[in-house]
Amino acid sequence: MSSLFDPVQAGALHLANRIVMAPLTRNRAPGALPTPLMATYYSQRATAGLIVTEATAISHQGQGYADVPGIWSAEQVAGWKKVTDAVHARGGKIVVQLWHVGRVSHNDLQPGGQAPVAPSAITAKTKTYLIRDGVGAFVDTSAPRALDIGELPGIVQDYRRAARNAIEAGFDGVEVHGANGYLLDQFLRSGSNQRTDAYGGPIENRARLLLEVMQAITQEIGGARTGLRLSPVTPANDVSDPHPQPLFEYVVRQLAPLQLAYLHFIEGQTGGARDYVQGDQPFDYAALRAAYRAAGGTAAWMVNNGYDKTLAERSLKEGADLVAFGKTFIANPDLVQRLRQGAPLNEPDRSTFYGGGVKGYTDYPALASNG
Rank of each mutant, 00 (worst) to 15 (best):
A299G: 04
I149D: 13
N346C: 14
P257F: 03
Y354I: 10
A115L: 13
Q63K: 11
S3M: 06
P232W: 09
F325Y: 13
R145F: 00
R145L: 01
S120I: 02
I122L: 13
E151C: 10
H243I: 11
L4V: 08
A224H: 09
P257L: 01
Y307F: 15
A216Q: 07
L230F: 05
G279R: 03
A12Q: 01
R293M: 03
V174Q: 02
I51F: 09
Q278H: 01
D67P: 00
G271P: 07
P116S: 08
V176R: 03
A16E: 14
A368M: 10
R132S: 08
A143V: 15
Q245L: 15
L147V: 11
H14C: 14
G102N: 07
Q219I: 05
R289G: 04
N346S: 12
V83I: 05
V68W: 03
D197F: 06
P7W: 07
H243S: 08
V52F: 02
L211F: 04
M302G: 07
F353A: 04
T84Q: 02
I19A: 08
F138W: 14
A236L: 13
N180G: 10
P244F: 07
N304P: 02
A162L: 01
Q76N: 10
E347M: 13
W301S: 02
L260W: 00
E313C: 05
Y276C: 08
R274P: 10
K81R: 14
F329M: 05
H100C: 07
G268H: 01
S105W: 08
V336Q: 08
D284G: 15
A224M: 03
D148Y: 14
A32G: 10
A343P: 09
T298S: 11
D108M: 10
R289A: 07
R314V: 14
F329N: 04
S3L: 14
D334S: 08
I155P: 08
G49N: 08
F138R: 13
L4C: 03
G150E: 13
R161V: 15
L263C: 00
I221V: 06
P111I: 04
R274D: 12
V68D: 01
R45P: 00
M302A: 15
L188H: 12
S73R: 09
G326L: 06
Q194A: 15
V174P: 02
T234S: 11
P7Y: 04
S231D: 03
L50M: 09
G272L: 12
A207Q: 13
R103W: 08
